[in-house]
């Protein structure tokens, strides 16, 4: 991936973070790829202090793969909030081919 594409990807990840955080019922967005599961990411973070984007973005064969790990904290049902988060991501992407994964890691009563 070129530097230009990396920068574009980071921008899109930031935009999608805002999109997911704005979904009613989303109380938190956690790192999609926990640092302890990513040796490279942990090493970079330890050296630079930089955090990986909370929303994970990868691209393969022209299809974007987006992963978000969220906390839900409202009377709204967690499954509904997860569906709405995925739908909000799709609305933001428009016609861009994408597969979206949303993982609910915390549900507050």
């Amino acid at each position: 991936m070129t530097e230009h594409v990396e920068a574009k990807s980071a921008t899109l990840a930031d935009e999608l973070l805002g999109v997911v955080q704005a979904v009613e019922g989303v109380s938190a967005v956690y790192p999609a790829q926990p640092l302890w599961q990513s040796v490279a990411g942990a090493a970079v973070a330890a050296v630079t202090g930089e955090q990986l984007p909370l929303i994970s973005l990868t691209e393969q064969d022209g299809t974007l793969a987006i992963k978000a790990r969220i906390g839900v904290g409202s009377p709204l049902p967690a499954p509904k909030v997860a569906r709405e988060a995925a739908a909000a991501i799709r609305r933001h992407l428009g016609n861009v081919p994408a597969v979206v994964e949303v993982l609910v890691a915390k549900i507050e009563a």
Partner: peptide, 29 residues
């Protein structure tokens, strides 16, 4: 986190989950 519990998705390209740990923590709370 435990096992991943699948949730219904509106788009067939989407995969939605809850972690077993999130449900256990909710039961506990």
């Amino acid at each position: 986190p435990g096992r991943s519990i699948p949730l219904r998705a509106e788009d067939p390209q989407d995969t939605l989950w809850e972690t077993e740990g999130s449900v256990s923590a909710l039961i506990r709370s």
